[in-house]
Design a protein around this nucleic acid. Structure first.
Length: 487
RNA sequence: GGUCCUGUGGCCGAGCGGUUAGGCAGUGGUCUGCAAAACCAUCUACAGCGGUUCAAAUCCGCUCGGGACCUCCA
């Protein structure tokens, strides 16, 4: 099954059969968040997409080392001399320590990811914790002539690199087009060419975050941390490097260039890029303010939504679209997913209690194969979910007596459904609190209601149901009796 | 302006040369004191115009929309 996994590789522009460098092991690096403000839902989608990939690789039996960095040194605000990093700017605004900002938003990020049931990565290194590694790479690039010093800063020489390698190989850009398209920004005079990017920046006097280096007191360029940390923890060539589409250029392109110049070979075999989550048809972005915060989604306290949605509903909503497709966020789409989510989860619950027959009326293995066919095709979760709904439909028919399932098959299907829903898609039941006392109380109430119904006292029975509903508890009547659930 | 992606039924969203995707909503029915849920049936679309092909939502061209990147951004 493993060898059949195909992943879309941005480098080739095609789906390729996934083959890890070291059999049975996968090294995966994902560009993490910049912790200078709250992560928005668009950021979350990327990390949830890679959580799916991480989960599926592990489900297939790979031993995965998943590295996702925390960018706490801040990226350059712009390329100008006055450039200051985002962390220190925010710190001065709020008159607190940079690391205080970092701490606050890192914690917030982790809390949000936990709500989305995203597994923590194996290693979550920080840029500030790897300054010496970054300095070493800069020195090596200076030593081998790939970089040059200018006024205390160090820049990567893109044109020189392009003489022997191909700058633009990932984003499919031609260097001539890039040169002609370069904007005339201030502070470019330090560079030999506008395309050159900073490896090390000399800090201006008021710049708070700074480290000593052979060239100046300063801070690392914004592409460098990923090369330093990925090569440290995964090796100079590793299997998968991921990030949002927006990082393809220039960030990942620069990473390839500096890493190749540093080590002499390509750093990554499979480049994976997840697509944007849009709001009102436009990508979410901190700088434009077109964002939705996770907390706003959960609480519904925003003009964009009619009500709040549980993180698992949002996760399911995201899984209903392919990770490489743009997904637009809307209240209606969320509401549709919410119903579908409950339908799926109820189906998976009911599967375990299905009445058994000597034989199954359908091929259970056929269902299971379809799950893997979908996932192996570049993680096609929308198709996987479509198949899961087919199973739910089958489950309901067994319940109604229109289809049959054997004991063996029920076990097999249950195991596979659970693996898909919980392990791979990473969904959880929304209501998992301990209800033992509520259970007891509800049993008493429903007993009274049952008595009322038996004497056709509909006023009482409806009053109980309506009042419970107002309190957030739904009562449903079936042939076998009444069931209840917390909304 | 350059590079690239995209346009699917009321809504969301797969498919990428020949078969019903799926979910939500709607409609008719079964069930039910009513409601809800569930089940069955139904609704059957591929921006427009050309072309290639026995066959196109799927490939090619043009036109018209939408978006991403080219500057920090998941």
């Amino acid at each position: 099954m493993q060898s059949q996994l195909k992943l879309y590789n941005t480098l080739s522009g095609e789906k390729e059969t996934f083959k890890p460098i070291l059999e049975g092991n996968v090294g995966m690096y994902v560009c993490g968040p910049t912790v200078y403000s709250d992560v928005h839902l668009g950021n979350c989608r990327t990390f949830i997409s890679f959580d799916l990939i991480y989960r599926y690789l592990m489900h297939l039996g790979f031993k995965v080392r998943y590295v996702r960095n925390i960018t706490d040194a801040g990226h350059l605000e712009n390329d100008a001399d006055e450039g200051e990093d985002k962390i220190s700017k925010k710190a001065r605004l709020e008159a607190i320590e940079p690391m205080e900002i970092v701490q606050r938003y890192s914690v917030g990020f982790h809390q949000v990811m936990e709500k989305f049931n995203a597994l923590p990565p194996s290693i979550e290194p920080t840029a500030t914790g790897h300054i010496s590694e970054q300095i070493q790479i800069v020195q090596a690039l200076l030593d081998n002539g790939a970089a040059y010093i200018s006024n205390g800063s160090v820049y990567f020489d893109v044109l020189k690199y392009n003489d022997s390698e191909e700058y633009g190989i990932l984003s499919k850009r031609k260097i001539e087009d890039l040169i002609s398209g370069t904007r005339d920004l201030d502070g470019q005079h330090e560079k030999r060419n506008p395309l050159d990017f900073a490896l090390w920046k000399k800090a201006s006097p008021y710049h708070i975050m700074r480290w000593p280096s052979p060239w100046s007191d300063g801070f690392p360029g914004w592409h460098l941390e990923c090369t330093a940390m990925s090569s440290k923890y995964l090796g100079e060539t590793f299997d998968i490097h991921g990030g949002g589409m927006d990082l393809k250029f220039p960030h990942h392109e620069c990473e390839i260039a500096q890493a190749t110049a540093f080590s002499g070979h390509k750093p990554v075999n499979y480049w994976m890029h997840t697509n944007m989550l849009t709001l009102n048809g436009k990508r979410m972005s901190k700088s434009t303010g077109n964002t939705l915060l996770p907390e706003e989604l959960f609480s519904g306290e925003t003009v964009l939504l009619e009500k709040g949605f549980h993180p698992m509903v949002a996760r399911f909503f995201m899984m209903q679209a392919h990770y490489r497709s743009v997904l637009d966020f809307s209240s209606d789409a969320l509401a549709a997913s919410e119903k579908g989510f409950h339908k799926l989860m109820n189906g998976s619950k009911e599967l375990k209690e299905l009445k058994l027959s000597p034989n199954s009326s359908l091929s259970i293995q056929g269902f299971i194969d379809s799950f893997y066919t979908a996932l192996n095709d570049d993680l096609n979760t929308p198709v996987l979910i479509a198949h899961l709904f087919e199973v739910v439909s089958f489950i309901n028919k067994v319940k109604e007596g229109a289809e049959q399932i054997s004991a063996e098959d029920r076990e097999l299907l249950s195991e596979s459904m659970n693996a898909m829903i919980f392990d791979v898609l990473g969904l959880t039941f929304i209501d998992e609190q301990d209800h033992s006392k509520l259970d007891a109380a509800m049993n008493i109430i429903l007993e009274l209601r049952k008595n009322a119904r038996e004497t056709k006292d509909w006023n009482t029975s409806d009053l109980i149901r309506d009042k419970l509903n107002e309190a957030g508890i739904t009562v449903k009547d079936n042939k076998e009796g009444s069931t209840w659930s917390v909304n």
